[in-house]
């Protein structure tokens, strides 16, 4: 049972790393600021799911609160940029 689960999660890790690289390509060449915020949003949420899989792979369940904190602060970055763009539209 143990080797079956570990092998499956090890194979699933490669697809996650590939999709992280594709998200980073969009973040580096995004034409406007909104596309970059969108890319780092998706990158952060997928990284939060990836850290759960890694904490199963390491056999160390104490590592799970990192994922909760990462989710909440990525959302905070999103809201900051949205408030900045909207406040600039309101004042001018």
């Amino acid at each position: 049972m143990e080797s079956w689960v570990i092998n499956f999660l090890t194979i699933a890790m490669f697809f996650y790393i590939a999709s992280f690289l594709l998200y980073i390509v969009r973040l580096l060449k995004g034409p406007t600021i909104s596309d970059m915020v969108l890319a780092i949003d998706a990158l952060g949420y997928d990284l939060a799911a990836f850290l759960i899989i890694l904490s199963i792979l390491f056999r160390n369940p104490i590592l799970i609160p990192c994922s909760i904190v990462l989710t909440l602060w990525i959302y905070a970055l999103d809201i900051y940029v949205a408030k900045y763009l909207e406040a600039k539209e309101m004042s001018e």
């Binding site: 780092i40 990158l43 990284l47 590592l63 990192c66 940029v81």
Partner: peptide, 26 residues
């Protein structure tokens, strides 16, 4: 563009988060 610089800095800190997690420092 300073706002783009902020997003690039967030990308760098996200990558460092993954590095610290892999080095077992929660």
């Amino acid at each position: 563009d300073l706002l783009k610089a902020l997003i690039f800095s967030a990308l760098q800190s996200t990558m460092y988060t993954l590095m610290f997690f892999l080095l077992m420092a929660p």
